[in-house]
Simulated assay, not measured.
Amino acid sequence: MTSLPALLAQAQRTDTGFTTAIPSNWLQGRTAYGGLSAALALAAAKQIESELPPLRSAQVAFVGPLAGPVTVTATKLRRGRNAAFIQSDIVSEAGLGLRTTFVFMAALSSAIDHDTTTPARHAPPPADAQLYTGPPGFFTGNFNFYDIKDAAGPTEWLRWGRLIEREGLDPEVELMALGDALPPAAFKLFEKMTPLSSLSWIVNFVRPRPVTTDGWWLLHAETDVAREGYSSQAMRMWNADGTLVAEGKQGVAIFG
């Protein structure tokens, strides 16, 4: 088992990012887990630019499969007085697998202060809770999960999650790694196992540099449209205090 902090520590740095290899315990099928790929892309973006303001938005395109040796490259698109746009790509022997655009933005003085977000009503799991961890040969083996029973509807997930190994990890990189950890919500519609694949993911961080307790984040995903091999789902993330920290949308391909 190679943890995310260990994977980043072992990476070979370059002028524009780094090279590494995707360990088998971070795969989901024939490709890297999407949250890992996004986290590696963010780590490269932070490597090429110093003193970045907080991460505010990430636009992720899952272009193709990523496995084995990979090269992670970051490019500054623009950096102004308040915001920085950085593109990160991940390439493997199969070609381009991931393209991301990260937006970092400092807080601005504003007369507008509007917030209608809903706090989470569910507490993190107690210390003696029975947690779920996936098998060591699959990406879920890097996480602890705790389902909130009877709280989710027929096309949604609501689950506490945390990285098992996270010491020394950049908090924003940790959030990207965890933010895609739920199965696609359309999975709940199937009567038999059906392959799915994330196509695109946009996540906006509504709290700059959020923190939590004991690594726990409450993850939510819900789909309202799934037809013709495509599903669109809404996603949210709260910290242990119940504060909404991120929300997003994801497009998912359904092969069956």
Rank of each mutant, 00 (worst) to 15 (best):
A185E: 08
V103A: 07
S37I: 00
D224G: 12
T212P: 01
L77R: 13
F85M: 08
P119I: 09
T223H: 08
H114V: 14
T2E: 02
A58G: 10
G251L: 05
S37Y: 04
P126L: 05
L8W: 10
S88Q: 08
G179R: 03
T212I: 01
M237C: 10
L244F: 06
W26R: 03
G134C: 00
P119L: 11
Y230W: 14
S50K: 13
E247A: 13
P210A: 07
P5S: 08
Y33C: 00
G242V: 05
L55P: 02
P125C: 07
F62Q: 05
L55Y: 02
K149E: 14
R207S: 12
V245Q: 06
H114P: 01
R56N: 09
K76C: 13
E167F: 01
E49Y: 03
G256P: 02
F255R: 14
G17K: 02
E167D: 15
Q130L: 15
D113F: 05
A43H: 11
G179C: 14
A253S: 14
W238V: 12
L27K: 01
A107F: 05
N25F: 00
D241S: 13
G256L: 07
I90R: 03
Y132F: 15
W216L: 09
T2Q: 10
G35E: 02
A44I: 06
E165C: 00
T117M: 07
D15T: 15
I90V: 10
S109G: 13
T243E: 15
S197L: 10
A127L: 12
W201M: 09
T117V: 08
A129M: 02
Q233H: 08
F85L: 10
A152W: 03
R78H: 14
N144E: 13
Q12N: 12
S109L: 14
T14K: 01
W217R: 11
T194I: 13
V91R: 11
T19Y: 04
R227H: 11
Q130G: 12
A44E: 06
S110P: 03
N25V: 00
F62C: 06
R121S: 15
A111L: 12
L36E: 01
Y33L: 00
F143P: 00
T73W: 04
F205L: 15
E222D: 06
T20H: 02
T194A: 09
D170I: 09
L196G: 02
Q130M: 15
S37C: 09
M235F: 01
T223C: 12
H220V: 03
A123F: 09
R209L: 10
A240N: 04
A6R: 05
V72C: 11
P125Y: 06
L199T: 07
G251R: 03
P53N: 07
P183W: 06
K76P: 09
